[in-house]
């Protein structure tokens, strides 16, 4: 008898909280979980989006490994993008938020507006298309020619050597938004009293203060911004397709995501595209696990 009353009490306490999660839960399960599961099922089928999907076992995965040169190139490019833009974007978003935290509110508002601009302006990366345009109308070509460094225009975005660094720079420039602003709001969780207590405990400089006080207090927000960076760093594609086209010169900047779009939209192989999505997901999930470990050890 006693046990049941206790259980009933707990349930009564829980019910309002369950009702809080419920609306999101319903929409999330129907529009995200179900499609993800469907997509994973598609990855084991041959599906051309016209006739019904036909089960074909692990054929899609076998094809990736054994019989698809483009796949291995795009994996390589994806990893290169992720290794460079991921950590750099993460650091930039934190360091800039931390820096501007030192200024007066007015200066802070203006500076954060400047840094957030690329995300706010949205698809403004077409500006870079004009800048790196292959003819002499492009700003970069016209500038370099007028000061005599170049004698004839370079097709920046059609050159396998230059295109990768350019896409990386534009991607970094655009990826600042979400992590940067969430870091700014997260820095408020670190209050003055903690710094005071730290000073009493013998913290002597900014770096110690950062490591022992600011970072541990920001831990949860850092995980958020890390996961967001993983999601965007592994999914570089829109900017690359927009600026360099698909396929780009020698597949120099084609990633798994741009390949997936090509396979699905142009070649109507949704089964294969889904398998690519699953592989990409596994790569990101593993990275997340490693990063989570690293963030958990911050400040220890």
């Amino acid at each position: 008898m006693k046990m049941t009353t206790k259980t009933r009490n707990i349930l009564q306490e829980w019910i309002p909280y369950y009702t809080m999660v419920l609306p999101f839960f319903i929409v999330f399960v129907i529009l995200t979980v179900l499609p993800v599961i469907t997509s994973i099922i598609f990855s084991f089928t041959d599906f051309d989006m016209v006739s019904a999907p036909k089960f074909n076992g692990v054929d899609n995965y076998a094809r990736m490994i054994l019989n698809d040169e483009i796949f291995s190139i795009t994996v390589k490019n994806t990893v290169v993008f992720a290794i460079i833009t991921g950590p750099l974007g993460f650091l930039l978003a934190f360091v800039l938020a931390w820096f501007i935290n030192e200024f007066s509110p007015m200066v802070r508002t203006i500076l954060s507006f400047l840094f957030y601009c690329p995300a706010l302006v949205g698809n403004a990366y077409f500006v870079w298309q004009t800048a790196f345009s292959s003819d002499s109308y492009g700003y970069v070509n016209s500038l370099l020619m007028s000061i005599g460094i170049l004698t004839e225009p370079i097709s920046w975005l059609k050159n396998a050597t230059y295109v990768m660094p350019i896409i990386i720079a534009v991607q970094l420039w655009q990826s600042m938004g979400v992590s940067f602003l969430s870091n700014i709001s997260g820095l408020q969780n670190v209050n003055g009293e903690m710094y005071e207590a730290g000073a009493i405990d013998g913290i002597r400089n900014r770096w110690q203060e950062l490591w022992y006080i600011t970072l541990p207090a920001m831990q949860h927000m850092l995980l958020f911004s890390a996961v967001m960076q993983i999601a965007s760093a592994f999914s570089v594609s829109a900017i690359a397709i927009e600026l360099a086209g698909y396929p780009s010169v020698n597949y120099a900047v084609d990633t798994i995501v741009s390949y997936m779009h090509d396979v699905g939209t142009v070649k109507y192989e949704m089964g294969y595209a889904s398998a690519l999505a699953v592989v990409l997901f596994v790569m990101m999930a593993v990275t997340r696990a490693v990063i989570k470990k690293a963030i958990d050890s911050v400040g220890r």
């Binding site: 995200t32 592994f234 999914s235 699905g264």
Partner: peptide, 10 residues
């Protein structure tokens, strides 16, 4: 983890 699944195939 849902955040990490690319939206294209969904």
């Amino acid at each position: 983890f849902a955040l990490l699944f690319n939206a294209y195939t969904l």
